[in-house]
């Protein structure tokens, strides 16, 4: 694993617990954390999962399951105007094979919702 990448996901995991703590107004044990990651966000889901598990525990959120909704990027081909979806940077246009394109979306990274452990409401 790339050491640099791990550091980056570690600070993102801290940002996630800060956002969750602010939204809930307190620290409680969580069952599940639902997030969305775009394939062009530069985030490694596995590295983030590893970091988040540690950070959530240390920050007092228990051991929630991290559920990652991995979206597809939306791109538009600059050679034939086809709008298409891709799961990474390398997937070319399905119409003409070109990888010359403009990015419409795919860099998103959001905390969508959390589910509290039973008896925590």
């Amino acid at each position: 694993m790339n050491g640099g990448a791990t550091m980056h996901e570690l600070s993102l995991a801290h940002d996630m617990t800060r956002i969750i703590g602010n939204a809930l107004g307190r620290k409680v044990h969580l069952d599940r954390v639902n997030i969305t990651i775009g394939p062009l966000s530069g985030i490694s889901p596995e590295s983030l999962r590893f970091c988040f598990t540690e950070v959530a525990k240390i920050e007092g959120f228990g051991e929630p399951e991290l559920v990652i909704n991995l979206t597809r990027a939306k791109l538009i081909c600059l050679d034939c105007d086809t709008e298409y979806e891709a799961k990474d940077f390398y997937q070319g246009c399905p119409g003409c094979g070109s990888i010359s394109r403009r990015i419409l979306s795919g860099r998103e990274f959001t905390v969508d919702s959390v589910e509290l452990e039973e008896g925590n409401d």
């Binding site: 800060r18 969750i20 959390v114």
Partner: peptide, 20 residues
């Protein structure tokens, strides 16, 4: 306690990069 109220889902919908 009844089952329906024990599961609590809280909507957050916040971009992680929003503070930055």
């Amino acid at each position: 306690m009844c089952d329906e109220v024990t599961e609590q889902k809280v909507d957050i919908t916040t971009s992680v990069m929003s503070k930055n």
